[in-house]
Amino acid sequence: MRVAIAGAGAVGRSIAAELLESEHQVMLIERELSHIEPEAVEAAEWVHADACELASLEEAGLEDCDVVIAATGDDKVNLVVSLLAKTEFAVRRVVARVNDPRNEWLFDDSWGVDVAVSTPRLLAALVEEAVAVGDLVRLMTLRQGQANLVEVTLPSHTPLAGAPVRALKLPHDSALVTILRGGRVIIPQADDSLEAGDELLFVATAAVEDEIRAALGH
């Protein structure tokens, strides 16, 4: 997979390094010449260009990229990069970094964003996930806000202990995608038994989250 990353700061470089380890092709686009350090991520292709300029993106070959990640420290830049990637180059997947949580509402499909990643929101979700046993925690928004990845850890007193997965009466527009149990990742089957302490991961629309809580006995 070919991935373009706009912004070669600490965040962009870290993302590039992770993707390269997974054997993807990575192009880092950076406007500030002082930030161009090919030795920092040697396997990446480095491009000195303004990712907000259409001509620069054309020259960089953005149309050949499968994914664009707008990872600069400026939300305005990330929105413009996302919009150009989606509307001018028809990039299949656009991921954008949200620096200021107050701007998060802007990062949707109207600006070409498929997935918005807000560090403050993600950290808050991870904290909630660690301490909110028994409650539903939203970890990530997927597909232009149409669905969320949500998690619940079954408490020690759960009435579902020993019950099969098929006993969960989940609403439409939701799916149990995996069960985390200790060090195991379980793809749930209808006859698999639920246990106290299981972490259940669902994909669901926001509208049915209360129904999931009810199905879990909350």
Rank of each mutant, 00 (worst) to 15 (best):
E88C: 06
V94N: 11
E30Y: 06
L62S: 08
P120I: 11
P101S: 06
R121N: 06
D108W: 07
L83R: 09
L106T: 01
N78M: 00
A49E: 13
R121D: 14
V94C: 11
F89K: 09
A55C: 04
I29S: 02
I15F: 06
H48N: 13
H48E: 14
I36Y: 02
E58P: 01
G61A: 11
I15K: 02
E63K: 09
Q25N: 01
A44N: 07
L28V: 01
E59R: 14
E37Q: 07
L54H: 11
A85I: 03
N78F: 02
D114H: 12
G61S: 08
E37N: 01
A40E: 13
V26P: 02
D108R: 15
E23G: 00
T72D: 02
N99E: 15
L79M: 14
A85E: 00
M27S: 09
R121V: 11
S22M: 10
V67E: 08
F89P: 08
A16K: 05
D75E: 03
E23N: 13
G12Y: 05
R92S: 15
E21F: 06
L28R: 02
E59L: 12
W111S: 12
P38L: 03
D66V: 00
E88M: 10
E59S: 12
K86V: 10
A44V: 12
A70C: 01
V113L: 12
I69F: 10
V98R: 06
M27H: 03
E53W: 09
S14R: 04
E30I: 09
V80T: 15
D74V: 14
D74Q: 13
W105R: 08
L19E: 00
H35E: 14
L62Y: 06
H24V: 00
V80G: 08
G73K: 08
P38M: 01
G61I: 10
H24Q: 15
E30F: 06
E23S: 14
G12D: 06
W105F: 15
E42P: 07
D100C: 11
E23F: 07
D50V: 03
A116M: 08
L62P: 05
E104S: 06
V68K: 00
A51E: 13
S110M: 00
V80L: 15
E59Q: 15
G12W: 04
D109F: 07
C65N: 11
E58G: 09
G61R: 11
L20A: 11
G12H: 02
V95Q: 05
A71Y: 06
